[in-house]
Amino acid sequence: MTAASNSMIAIGNLVKKFGPFTAVDGVSFSVAKGEVLGFLGPNGAGKSTTMKMVTGYLAPTEGSISVCGHKMDEETLAAQRLIGYLPEGAPAYTDMTPLEFLRFIANVRGLKGADAKAAIDRAVARTEIGGVLEQAIDTLSKGFRRRVGLAQAILHDPAVLIMDEPTDGLDPNQKYAVRKLIAEMAPEKAIIISTHILEEVDAICTRALIIDRGQIVADGTPAQLMARSRYHNAVSLIMPAAQSGGVAEILGALPGVAAVEAQPRGEDAAFTVFQPQGAEGDTRLIDEIANLAKEKGWTLRTLYREPGRLDEVFRRLTRPDTETDASGEAA
């Protein structure tokens, strides 16, 4: 992979072996300023291990890591100064209060006096932990702990932000707040997040990597990844089950239709009409179906062109042997 000239993180052929087990197997990528890179992959795929190497916590078996031009193995401290890191599970010194903890981090990072105070105030405001500053961290809820971890990571306004499952265990409101925070910071930073939540990729990532068994199996914008879905450009419609007799045959007979799938849905019936590959941006099918519905007097509850389904792409790429299972699944 070619590293763009403005890339802030450049990773080349990263390999990590734990004894006989290869956790990361030749991963290369780069992240530019303004990019939010999402790491996707099943548990144990090597996402966390990769992040641990990028932040200098683990030493790679092979490969190179460079952060804003500083090589991690040669200029470790210079590289680490530029990174804010939220490790998996947001570990913190639980006997401290968030304020003491943030002061410690500020101190270690060389922020003093007024600068430290300003940095702490800003991080506290951004992560909204002002109400619990004086409470011991081990008495805090999971959501607050995560946000204390986030505050720690963004304290020195780092150029590079690396977060391992930043929204794991948060309630929907907190997830929304964290995503908003990431989006706000994104233009000025290079950000890597890992997540299990596919909707998150669409919501905040400008680019996503799918990792499986230590290797990158897909790399692209969320839209590009969704374009790899078999649902990409398919037309889905839902109508009352009472009207759905023979509909599948009628839809299947339309020009340019590759296949039709039907799924019962309570009182309704859902149909997905697939187009052949390469029907990019072709809106004729959906128009045709809309006209057909008018003609036949179908009551359409929904009718839309699918952008593609990330979960299906994810399953297909990370568990290639179960490709056929996915086809029978309802959305």
């Binding site: 641990k52 916590y57 990174i83 490790p87 913190a92």
Partner: peptide, 14 residues
């Protein structure tokens, strides 16, 4: 055990 070592060793500390 707690995992703070990951934090400590990824901070710019010799």
């Amino acid at each position: 055990r707690v995992g703070t070592i990951e934090l400590l060793l990824s901070l710019p500390v010799p």
